[in-house]
Design a protein around this nucleic acid. Sequence first.
DNA 1: GATGAATGAGTTTTCATTCAT
DNA 2: AATGAATGAAAACTCATTCAT
Lengths: 220, 220, 220, 220
Amino acid sequence: MASSTARGSSGTVKLRADAARNRTQVLAAARTAFRELGTAAPLDEIARRAGVNIATLYRRFPDRDALIRQVVVDGFTLVLQAAQAALQSAEQDPLGAIENYLLQVVDQRDLIVLPLAGGPVTDDPEANALQQQIAAALDELIATARTKGAIRTDVTAVDLTITSVLICRPMPYLPTEDATALVTRHARIFIAGLAPGAAQPLPAPPAYEDITSRHLSQTI
Amino acid sequence: MASSTARGSSGTVKLRADAARNRTQVLAAARTAFRELGTAAPLDEIARRAGVNIATLYRRFPDRDALIRQVVVDGFTLVLQAAQAALQSAEQDPLGAIENYLLQVVDQRDLIVLPLAGGPVTDDPEANALQQQIAAALDELIATARTKGAIRTDVTAVDLTITSVLICRPMPYLPTEDATALVTRHARIFIAGLAPGAAQPLPAPPAYEDITSRHLSQTI
Amino acid sequence: MASSTARGSSGTVKLRADAARNRTQVLAAARTAFRELGTAAPLDEIARRAGVNIATLYRRFPDRDALIRQVVVDGFTLVLQAAQAALQSAEQDPLGAIENYLLQVVDQRDLIVLPLAGGPVTDDPEANALQQQIAAALDELIATARTKGAIRTDVTAVDLTITSVLICRPMPYLPTEDATALVTRHARIFIAGLAPGAAQPLPAPPAYEDITSRHLSQTI
Amino acid sequence: MASSTARGSSGTVKLRADAARNRTQVLAAARTAFRELGTAAPLDEIARRAGVNIATLYRRFPDRDALIRQVVVDGFTLVLQAAQAALQSAEQDPLGAIENYLLQVVDQRDLIVLPLAGGPVTDDPEANALQQQIAAALDELIATARTKGAIRTDVTAVDLTITSVLICRPMPYLPTEDATALVTRHARIFIAGLAPGAAQPLPAPPAYEDITSRHLSQTI
DNA sequence: GATGAATGAGTTTTCATTCAT
DNA sequence: AATGAATGAAAACTCATTCAT
């Protein structure tokens, strides 16, 4: 999928084997470079890490934005998979399903580059579509849990969204294991806070529409 | 303070009025530029936003690092104040004190630029000192709360630290109010999760020392 | 004028002496480079010829277009001066005035870089204004000459315009003197052809409006 | 001819049908690209316009020069045909023959890419030969006309040459019909100026030898 | 014979930093 | 103290050319 095809003017096309390999390597290098250096990371540094010539990078991704977009789409795909996997067990164990979702996001946070300081994600249709699917899945997850009385009634899918974003923010100067350990703890405490009866009611979240499209496309 | 003095070879000196004003403006511009563009934001862009010449910026801050350092120190100062303020009420209402701390950080998150992707904070003695004071205050806050049985026993000051970091991460493409609303909700749920009896015990956090000094100076 | 001022967002500003000198040199270098290599001439080659750093060139002219535009405007200015000078003697000697105009353009053709292959002139207001003044002056020149019966009645100002363009086209691989000699002869024959009674009536020219604005701005 | 053969080490060879078609398309694309963008036009842009792969272009034309050379030779061929056609009627109507020549050049100017700013034509034997034949034909045309007293005695074949060059210069930003109309008028006026008795004697042209070979090969 | 792909060598453009006013 | 200006070095981007399929 993302790793072996490219979109041209006439839809998705199959790449030659070596080209597909290069494309994958560039994306992997971009992912880590973006996390370490921000989305303004030098493109030739990315090419170097990927072991390809800078012009090869440009052949696959005509500009920085195209590269960012694909990295983001790849990340969104993983998030969607986590959400859909969680839905499987939502009926039996709603809170556990939410926990599974968040912890899976934590585990894969190195691969999930949500838009960072330094560069917007333009309105990419693929990203937008994924985003809506994620929202739908999280909505269902929350609805199921609420129906079963497994979570506070004032928690919404938006809260899972923003938590996903925060969890995935890179912390470049912490060793990966430490960052993961800290974020895991954070997620666990957050999940505990989802349980009903615990606390004061939450203030109203912004309307989902207000943070969608352009805006949310930037942050998850 | 930070806005009207500068450290030279002979210690802190009083600036001329216009110079002090320029310095303040540069710091404000840097703060927002860092949040929007990352700490690699062009220095002349910062000068432009501050309405001063690039050479004037250089006169105040010999290099990018000096500028970052001061912005971070200003942010740390605010965090420390929030922590110390919270300590005042810790005896009477420990969980409320923690809540006060976190919500105050949320409220001021626009002013708190904790180190971002794109540039490390070098070992600044002033930043390090503040960081230790923050750690001490949060330690005391947690200790008091734990003694009073107001929080789960497996929660530590480190959890407050990492939460502060996550809360303050910029979300450049969300309108400020929306970002704040979302983060506020996140903080409230997290705080609820701090209450005792709620959940499964947490995994052990990394040793505080492991994430301190160079490392933590980068992430809080 | 063009050599010592620059237009910023707040109108025309006086340049520092050294900056003005650099600006002039860059324009001179651009003029010849454009004639020799086309408007796609490497900008660093132009900077080199001007004896300034490439970044200095960019400081004065934010992109290639700005540079082209100014070179064109400078050329248009010379053409306008030639047309207005010719008007002085139009009453006494109409055909001689036209001849003076064309031969003056020939003489200065090295300084007159009318838009060349390789780069459009965007709709620059200054260029457009000059162009209209040129058209007005040539119109008057032709009208006077026609009234006096000094030229064929089917000749129009457009014919002078297009002739100016052709005359000024660079011939990079001819020695300057040869090119000038050849073009001078060409102009003289053309002028002879303007006399009345000589030849068959010409086919109608395109409407002036049709070749004005965007279009004519490209060719004179 | 030019469109269906290629010169290899063993002389001219017949191309396979598809190869010949590709070659023709490349030449046509090159012709327009050169007129629009100058002879420095990107080769892959030319390949794109021709609908062939860049490597296919290279197979036919080993370098840019070979491509330019063929385009120029094709143009020279058309010019020669026009000159020779004009010679047919030179005896009966000398001035009409000259007019026929120039107007035919005007009509075909889109197909005639005489060397442009941006790149020299190397000394191609085929081009040189054509050029000499053109010069001979124009010489004869002028000689005949002069003998018959149909033109001014100070006009030479060089004047026809330079006029041909000027006429053919591309005016990329004018609609083709407008450009042609304007140039047609220009040519008609010029032709009128050729008639005897009209004007002051012209200054001497540069010696034919001085502008021949390398130089003239660049400009006609 | 044709093409997708890769690359090295430019060229353009930006930016941190220093200098002269 | 502040600014306009200049510059070297880096980064973005393009393009001619060759190679493998």
